[in-house]
Design a binder for these strands. Structure first.
Lengths: 121, 121
DNA sequence: TCCAACAGTTCCGAAGTTCCGAACTATGGG
DNA sequence: CCCATAGTTCGGAACTTCGGAACTGTTGGA
């Protein structure tokens, strides 16, 4: 197991963030990590809405979010804790995450992701 | 040739917008349409930075932007004029496009897209 | 009217990406 | 040491993207 690479905040690219959050599952996971007081184990997020996401897909989603610079993951014994890098990303790209999370939230009335009420962190 | 489908603004999904703008070429094209007084022929955008984009790829990029609800395309004789749907999208998802375009613009100092801050309309 | 030039679109194969089950690797407890 | 738990890696099927060649539709000229 490789030691979990995180990009420095100045290496974070907007296209990576958009790509990561263009998947509603990942956007929902990210929104949940933000709202959940900032730390969540991977397995706590296995279900998004009514759909169960297989472990291998989940693992990949976390990798994409991590490498986009959106979350920070640390191994704590047997589990991995994820925290959002909201503040850093917001400082680098002001308004970007807010706009995206609000867009999903305002769309959620119609269907899908439980990304309701985008309170920052 | 099919008659150019545009989604109604209420059918526009955030994931489609993020997906469309997650490609730096498309983001640059969109930024250019916005800044260029709102109407541009496809061929006027064939080169993004120093790279020449093949016609077929361009055609596809426009299709993705159109179907995401970001631009409106109309045939005028032999050419297609594209205008941005900024106002509509901004009304539906406030701050989303602003955040994205600013993110690319503030990243442009480092490289890539010529989406440098607010050109003449 | 016919033809060439032009602006875009469609088609299709190669290359790349994503998804997910199965097998695997750490870590911690008994 | 062995098992359970939490996550990762592998690999193949399904999907997406890219771009060249061939196509369609429009216009202007002979």
């Amino acid at each position: 197991m490789r030691p979990l690479f995180h990009p420095a905040i100045e290496d974070v690219r907007p296209e990576a963030i958009l790509h990561a959050l263009a998947d509603p599952n990942r956007a929902a996971i990210f929104a949940k990590i933000m709202r959940a007081g900032c730390v969540e184990a991977c397995s706590a997020l296995a279900a998004v809405g009514d759909r169960v996401i297989p472990k291998s897909s989940l693992s990949n989603h976390f990798k994409v979010l991590r490498e986009a610079g959106l979350i920070r993951s640390e191994r704590h014994g047997v589990e991995v804790r994820n925290s959002s890098r909201w503040a850093e990303v917001e400082a680098r790209f002001p308004g970007l995450l807010t706009g995206i999370i609000n867009a999903y939230a305002s769309d959620a009335g119609a269907d899908s992701a439980d990304a309701t009420a985008a309170g920052p962190r």
